Simulated scan of single mutants.
Amino acid sequence: MRLTQGTFSFLPDLTDEQIKKQIAYAVSKNWSVSIEYTDDPHPRNNFWELWGLPLFEISDPASVLYEINSCRKQQSNQYIKVNAFDNTRGVESCVLSFLVHRPGFEPGFELLRSEDIGRNQKYSFRSYATEKPEGSRY
């Protein structure tokens, strides 16, 4: 199962050159860039680990790509994404987010069904990755 999360998630994985162009666009708009990673790919997991500090006032996309590649080396079995934030209105708003790395194996999700009041059915899902403890999921 291929996780679809972020701006370009329904497209094939971006190449480093395409990633660099997206970062160049973010830099041209004076957006701050951050890199995050996780081993829990649930779409409602908002608590990804931050790689280093957010990159403020970056002028060269190559420096962001360097940090992405460093994160890929250290966290090769994790999902890694890039976020860009626009603070022109005085509020940090995420305006761009996309995956730049996936683990070699994506376990997928389990659909859970439960009974509710009046014979209604409730559905939820969870990642198969969370069956194992954090840090040993892949």
Rank of each mutant, 00 (worst) to 15 (best):
T15L: 02
C94V: 09
R119W: 05
Y25I: 01
S28L: 05
E67L: 08
S63Q: 15
N46T: 06
E67P: 02
Y37A: 07
F125P: 05
P61D: 11
V100Q: 13
R102I: 02
V100I: 13
N77T: 11
R113G: 10
S32Y: 01
L53G: 01
Y123A: 08
R126T: 11
E110S: 08
A26R: 00
D40M: 00
E110A: 11
F105W: 01
T88H: 14
T7M: 02
L99P: 01
P12A: 12
F105G: 01
Y79A: 07
N30F: 06
W51P: 03
G118E: 10
R72Y: 01
S97G: 08
V82H: 02
M1N: 12
Y37S: 07
R72Q: 05
T38E: 13
T130Q: 06
N30P: 00
P133N: 10
R102F: 07
Q121D: 09
R126H: 04
V33N: 04
T4F: 05
K122H: 13
Q75S: 05
Q75G: 03
V91F: 09
F8V: 04
K29H: 06
T130M: 04
H42I: 00
G118P: 04
D40E: 10
S63C: 10
K122P: 07
G118R: 07
I23S: 03
Q75V: 01
S70M: 09
A26N: 04
L11V: 03
S32I: 04
Q5F: 11
T38V: 10
E17Q: 15
T15H: 01
P133G: 10
M1H: 11
I80F: 10
K20E: 15
N69H: 13
V95P: 03
R137M: 06
T7E: 12
R102G: 05
N69M: 06
W51C: 12
G118C: 07
N46F: 07
G108C: 05
D40V: 03
S32R: 05
S34T: 09
K29W: 00
S59W: 08
R137F: 00
T7S: 02
P61L: 12
Y66R: 15
I19F: 09
I68K: 11
D86M: 04
N69V: 02
L112T: 08
L65V: 14
L3E: 13
E17Y: 15
P133E: 13
V27G: 04
A84P: 01
I23H: 02
E17M: 15
Y138W: 11
E110M: 06
A24Q: 15
L65S: 09
G52D: 09
E134C: 04
D16Q: 06
